[in-house]
């Protein structure tokens, strides 16, 4: 279980990295934390001819809060960094909420948040957090900069809007509304495993009335996925167990998750409904919901 040979590049600047990607295209892979790429290479399921290690590029490892409260996360920010960041806890709390679910400490200290997003595993937490919070994803290539909306980013199983010559350099999360609440819940076979199903929820609530809702599921389709009908059922409704049950019923009816050796499709569909109620209850717990 050892990686096949490759040409190793460790550019010092982003431009150099982008030039390498422009030159080698599909035969190159970007290496940041490596927590998804290296095992694939060790299993020889991935055999890039060129590995572009961006780990030494300065300026990609910061979490910055903008003037209006938006939070920008760079390509080399590790999961653990966001778990312990007070800026993230204050301005992008859904990321902080997701972090304890992400793998284990020793993975979080190397794995990058943007790497997880760019990898696009449908059972991982961060793609769902992206769908729920709708940040802007900034991709750079030697031919320029592209801003990609969250809704346009995930294309299919391990397939995203990123081109082979692009690096996802920053993700800019919009300011967290004072009325916003959120939760991330999931069920995995074992602690730290990829989820059987999970959900990231973000609501804005005025009094006890839901004014907006984003429900993003992971482990429930070939990508992380939102369920707009359930969200619409929430908007305008009051925070209550009945409201959540109604949303859950829509979720279970509309999702058609794939079966695998760990859980059946019926189980996942049922679980998505259960997690809808539990996630919404957790998100609104401090609002005094009776859910």
């Amino acid at each position: 279980m050892k990686p096949a040979p490759f040409t190793y590049h460790r550019p010092e600047t982003l431009d150099d990295a982008l030039d390498l990607l422009a030159t080698h295209g599909d035969d190159a892979k970007v290496l940041a934390g490596g927590q998804s790429l290296i095992p694939l290479m060790a299993l020889r399921m991935g055999r890039p001819g060129h590995v572009v290690d961006i780990g030494r590029i300065a300026g990609l490892d910061s979490i910055t809060v903008g003037a209006d409260g938006d939070v920008t996360i760079g390509a080399l920010v590790r999961h653990e960094q966001t778990r312990t960041s007070t800026d993230v806890a204050t301005h992008a709390p859904l990321i902080a909420t997701a972090m304890p679910w992400v793998a284990h400490r020793a993975i979080r200290s190397r794995g990058t948040v943007l790497g997880s997003i760019a990898h696009g595993d449908p059972a991982a937490e961060m793609p769902a957090v992206v769908l729920a919070t709708e940040p802007t994803l900034i991709a750079r290539s030697s031919s320029g900069v592209r801003e990609i909306a969250a809704a346009d980013f995930f294309h299919g199983y391990l397939d995203t809007a990123l081109r082979a010559d692009e690096i996802l350099t920053e993700v800019r999360f919009p300011a967290w509304s004072p009325n916003a609440v959120g939760a991330v819940v999931e069920v995995a076979r074992r602690h730290g495993d990829y989820a059987l199903v999970g959900m990231a929820a973000m609501l804005t609530v005025d009094g006890d009335t839901i004014s907006s809702a984003a429900l993003a599921y992971f482990g429930a389709a070939s990508t992380a996925i939102r369920v707009p009908d359930a969200e619409q059922a929430l908007v305008g409704a009051t925070v209550s167990a009945d409201t959540f049950d109604a949303a859950a019923a829509i979720v279970s009816a509309e999702l058609s998750p794939p079966p695998d050796i760990h859980a059946s499709a019926a189980y996942r569909r049922h679980l998505a409904g259960v997690l809808t109620v539990r996630g919404l209850s957790a998100a609104t717990a401090e609002i005094g919901a009776d859910a």
Partner: peptide
């Protein structure tokens, strides 16, 4: 978990 919920009649 799938088998548990099948046995329980939940799914």
């Amino acid at each position: 978990p799938t088998k548990i919920l099948e046995l329980a009649g939940v799914i």
